[in-house]
Design a protein around this nucleic acid. Structure first.
Lengths: 341, 341
DNA sequence: ATGAAAGCGCTAACAT
DNA sequence: ATGTTAGCGCTTTCAT
């Protein structure tokens, strides 16, 4: 492998010291215009590419972060990733991808390698194992931002959570306004904290409209299409005959929609389904589908920004700023949803 | 920010020189067992984490690669990413994610930053702009592996392509065996090289079975569900009345299936649809769906391995090994597909 | 307005 | 069996 061009080569070619080359590149002190041009020309002539590795060693900053995702296949994360990357790129950062694959050992291995790489921070987008992973990032003194888990518990730890109340409230208001009175909820795995939160919020808000939780079927879904199908069949035979169902996952929503269509329902005119997130697939199936959007892109961007902020003010232990809440909002694509007569 | 523990700290703590520490860590020369233990203990005591940055600078190897993907959202790439990551992890590599977003400038910016980071190689999974990108990686002397594009054209460039003939041949044989005689093809954008290749292969193989291309409707799809829907409607009104349709994209397949079901067809009993890749979604809609699998995981793994190989034997210009072909194979989930009577 | 020199945390000859 | 020393390619303080 041929030797890479270095600062000294450029310096020699331009007839200056390599200090000057460094200053030209980083614009870190005044250099006479004429000298500057000579250096710039030398850089072009030699096709010089500065070494971020050497720079990192000297400055103790790598301008890289680690992004741990439980599953790249989860469509919600696409936006998140994009948001992270855009902000990272804009600030000269690059991101290491770490596919946790829901595997704790793998994740820990990953975090350790990030520590060795001296990344400037870690983004944990994997709520399921956050506790152990956070312990690991703390152990390794890595600034961390956690998605959808707890509030910041320690210095150098940021957190992003969702304001589900907002989206669900809008969804309920929307459905009530359309005339719906009989609701149902298809939840996620109720062993999960987040699933219970959403269910409780939904029931609480319905109660504000005078709807008794006892009249609201709650079905636990399995986050796949067939989970949604099964949920619909349960709802169909439910004596409470809901006309509007609020779900919590795109696959579930798709399953409900497909099974309902099979059963001869017109969606959304005869059954209103509200899914979570901007599930493009479900809305291709039913273009008028209304959803609660989690704003994945904004979340990613916000997380990366928070990480940058944490770094910036790491001396001033500004614990007040480390928790940020993201809106969830109703996306009404076409407001023709009415309860059946 | 508090100073990180270094080799010297460990050396001092263990009462040895830092050379010895280095050798203990890398197992790169013999160290007396007793000394070794002392060093190991010191590492634990001080919670020492070796700096990959310093190591990279000294060894001129970063053990990191860049993965440029046109679109993380494309489900085909999930497997590819996973394959890449697994092999990378197994060899102590980490991977930088680069979301091209189909943007050439962004991609080039990314490649340059990879060059500055001195990554050991680049994986280009973005056939649409490969030409320009390859020029850029060459310019920066980065070992490169390209997915689904051309054969290796230069030293330090590897290529992975698909053997579509294999999968399509199996698909046709399968359908013929079931008794189908009237076929159709829904292609990708025929401006794309790869789309034309697949169409031609399909028609060629049908011809081998005595089926004239003129009897085979070929419809250009738009890679989305509504493209598939439209394709089905065209096929429905086609006088050639195909009983089996081979598609080239998962979304198209889903669209065809949905629209066909709408029109009262039972899939696959009344219309056989063959999609490309292991489209889990389409097969959730129709569990018995038969597909041509592209083996995304294997491709990712193979690409990463090829990159590793390129590095290894970069002196011996072993141009014969730089192009690898991946099988495409038929995945028959349930062989009940018969042409309608 | 520019240069000299030390240092970032390692690796790897070269010694002993 | 272990220590000494010279880099790797930059940044940055201190001189001039």
């Amino acid at each position: 492998m041929l030797r890479r061009v270095t600062t000294s080569d450029v310096a020699k070619h331009a007839g200056v010291s390599y200090t000057t080359v460094s200053h030209v590149i980083n614009e870190t002190r005044f250099v006479a215009e004429e000298t500057r041009q000579r250096v710039l020309q030398a850089i072009v002539d030699l096709n010089y590419t500065p070494s971020q590795v050497a720079r990192s060693l000297a400055t103790q900053q790598t301008y890289s972060v680690g992004l741990l995702i439980s599953d790249v296949g989860n469509p919600f994360y696409h936006r998140v990733i994009l948001g992270v990357e855009d902000v990272a790129l804009a600030h000269g950062y690059n991101v290491f991808l770490m596919n946790a694959s829901y595997d704790l050992n793998r994740s820990i291995k990953y975090i350790r390698s990030m520590a060795e790489r001296r990344v400037d921070g870690i983004l944990l987008m994997s709520s399921s194992m956050s506790e152990e992973l956070l312990a690991e990032t703390q152990e390794n003194q890595l600034p961390t931002v956690i998605l959808d888990w707890l509030e910041c518990s320690a210095p150098d730890v940021g957190a992003i959570t969702f304001d589900f109340e907002m989206g669900i409230r809008q969804a309920v208001a929307h459905l009530i306004e359309l005339g719906h009175r009989r609701f149902a909820h298809v939840s996620g795995d109720l062993k999960l904290f987040t699933a219970r939160i959403r269910r409780d919020l939904f029931l609480k808000i319905l109660a504000e409209y005078g709807i008794d939780p006892i009249d609201v079927p709650v079905i636990e879904g399995n986050f796949r299409i067939d989970g949604g199908r099964r949920a619909f069949r349960e709802l169909e035979s439910d004596p409470r005959k809901p006309t509007a169902v609020v779900t919590v996952n795109d696959m579930i929503a798709i399953g409900i929609i497909l099974e309902a269509q099979n059963a001869g329902f017109r969606i959304p005119d005869q059954l209103s389904v509200i899914g979570v997130d901007d599930i493009s697939l479900a809305s291709e199936l039913v273009p008028s589908l209304t959803t609660i959007s989690l704003h994945g892109y904004e979340i990613g961007a916000m997380a990366m920004n928070l990480l940058l902020d944490l770094k910036g003010k790491s001396e001033s232990v500004d614990t007040t700023r480390c928790h940020r809440v993201v809106d969830t909002t109703l996306v009404i694509r076409q407001s023709t949803t009415r309860p059946p007569d």
